[in-house]
Design a protein around this nucleic acid. Structure first.
Lengths: 383, 383
DNA sequence: TTGTAGGCGTTATCAA
DNA sequence: TTGATAACGCCTACAA
């Protein structure tokens, strides 16, 4: 059986154009240890010196300039030589060197998005919007993930800047970080995504979080709730602060006692934090327990829903739950989750658009775009 | 109030080192239409010609080579000149040009991962593993997303190759695509992630799906189930095929009637597909309804759980549910989900390791690493 | 239509 | 310790 495998592989490699097959040493071993199986094959390593236009020119028997023309101005080259050059390229495995092109042209054809947390579906949706918009302009998008770690963010920012990306979209750990200004000042268009600054020293695209908090509370008031918990954290996160601010102002506008708008802090914004908050909520005496919870994002809302369901409470009868973001998992929860929707894809598309506009040059006008969130009412608050 | 804002911004810009502030025309307008607020500010655009080592050298009154030494061999430069050069760099806003460096050195310091679907937490976890491993080797990771679209995959592959990335990790739409071989043959180390080939013509890291299917069924048999539904699709996806194969062989090894291992096909692997399958399952007469469902991934399992819960069935009493992948949302479901775990992070770490080893040069041995999946039993099958 | 020369920004080598 | 020079691969003039 191994014999057969080896023969097949040899044939395949030959088809792939490997020329040094005869001296290839083929060894197969199968080991199994620690729940890990491995097969090993030695393979003919290809000559690693990279093939340049010069090599192609020599092989095709033309000058270097002709090869360049085949790539960039094909109509200036006769069909016969063009074919000859193309054949030489595939023969030699020629690959254009992007560094050299970029060095020469001065601009790259990529847009970068530095995500705060790639494991949060909110940000991957934003990224999808960026990709959509960039694609229509012929740009490719590269993604990096800071994982909320300042040092990694810094490293990625530096690399992107050195790579001279056309535009640098970023959801920063700290939107007020002077690093961002420095990058922008040196000439890379920077767009802050899903965060804002108080001044408008950079382009930014975000959603009006104060309004979102207000909308959420107004919905719960409409549904007759007069004792509500606002659940979220960390307290110093802009989104959390703004949404709470909006919630509080809607609450007091309705002439209600601030005491009845409970605030439950969480460590972070993950499902586990919602479960933990659920435990605290369930522990409250029924007389003091809120009739509704407004969660600062959907992950927390999902965790909360799971926890109280497990504890035997029913949603929305015992506790109505309102989330924030309207990620795909929200509509699909055991009790479909009401949520304050953010236009995620459009956030991304707009951010990409701003970056490309700024990159296009001309007198630039920093712009702060604020989208309006929208309530999506489902069973978890409607009953 | 606007006056104040303008003054603040002027001060901030001045602190940021803008020198042409005096001629900056500052305009603020606030428009509101279509649920979208905008503020506009014109800003002094920085002189865009990029600053080179030559400029720095001139400004610092030293030669170009000295500037280079400050960057690359600081100890060969006297402290005084070093400081002078560094000062000139920050004054001028010098940014190293990565293209030029790479052209000169011939190698980049990045690893690329081309994801199949960035919105699936499985792949972002794999990406996290890659980042972890790359970081310890001082490489940065750039991510791209093909979104299961062949054309986009192709475009990204080409760009990465032209950028001469150190290694190209990819979860391809089609693992047998000859494009991958072509890229590898031309000298870029390619590692297939979470897929395999029948031959071993490229490095790959995956999980043994046949074994996973087997483990899942064995667990359900242990729990006493004798009528089980295997739920998943599309039928031509390698993972789906392999897991079903494993499930079937475990089933027949137990001497059971193949008729009692029902197969429910789904369109895709998303939560919505699980809900849809749930509807079909609920529609079956109780006598024919399986007592357990083995889902080909957790998203489908979650959808199924939500759907049957809504229909009034209980898990695991009426229907036990077993998922696959053990994504974070699985443990956090309303009924914590049993699942066949794949070592996602380790998958990523190993893939990155293989790529870097191959990139390091020397005689290369293609390796196929197959991890062993592991059952994680929770309430959804334990009761 | 094809060939030649110069330069993009960086680094390494060698000479001062 | 510092400075001058050549090369990386590509592209664009301009010349033949």
């Amino acid at each position: 059986m191994w014999e057969t495998g080896v023969t097949q592989i040899l044939r395949k490699w030959r088809e792939q154009g490997h020329t040094r097959l005869d001296c290839a040493k083929i060894v197969s071993t199968r080991t199994s240890r620690g729940g890990l199986d491995q097969w090993r094959w030695t393979v003919p390593t290809s000559a690693n010196r990279s093939v340049s236009v010069k090599d192609v020119a020599a092989a095709a028997g033309v000058s270097l300039g002709t090869v360049s023309n085949v790539l960039n101005k094909p109509d200036r080259v006769s069909e016969a030589t063009r074919q000859r050059v193309l054949a030489a390229m595939t023969d030699l495995g020629f690959v254009r060197n992007e560094s050299a092109r970029q060095l020469r042209s001065g601009v790259s054809r990529t847009l970068a998005y530095l995500m705060l947390d790639a494991s949060n579906p909110f940000f991957t949706d934003v990224a999808a919007g960026i990709e959509t918009e960039a694609e229509t302009h012929g740009l490719t998008v590269v993604l990096c993930n800071s994982g909320s770690r300042g040092a990694r963010e810094q490293a990625h920012l530096e690399l992107f800047e050195q790579q001279r990306v056309q535009g640098l979209l970023v959801t920063p750990v700290d939107p007020d970080s002077p690093t961002l200004d420095a990058v922008a000042r040196r000439g890379t268009p920077v767009v802050i995504v899903d965060r804002t600054r108080d001044d408008d020293s950079l382009c930014s695209v975000a959603v009006d979080d104060v309004l979102g908090g207000r909308i959420g509370i107004e919905h719960l008031l409409d549904r007759g709730h007069r004792r509500v918990a606002f659940i979220g954290g960390p307290a110093d996160l802009g989104q959390v602060r703004d949404r709470l601010e909006g919630a509080r102002s809607a609450w007091s506008d309705a002439g209600l006692d601030p005491e009845d708008l409970l605030t439950l802090r969480t460590e972070d914004l993950r499902v586990a934090d919602g479960r933990e908050a659920g435990q605290r909520l369930v522990g409250l005496p029924a007389s003091r327990r809120p009739t509704a919870a407004f969660c600062v994002n959907d992950l927390i809302a999902l965790g909360l829903l799971q926890q109280i369901t497990q504890a035997g409470l029913r949603t929305p009868d015992d506790l109505a739950i309102l989330g924030y973001d309207d990620i795909d998992y929200a509509a699909a929860a055991a009790v479909p989750l009401s949520s304050v929707r953010q236009p995620r894809q459009q956030l991304g598309r707009t951010a990409a658009d701003l970056a490309m506009t700024e990159a296009a040059g001309g007198p630039h006008t920093h712009r702060r775009v604020l989208f309006t969130p929208e309530l999506v009412a489902r069973a978890s608050t409607l009953g």
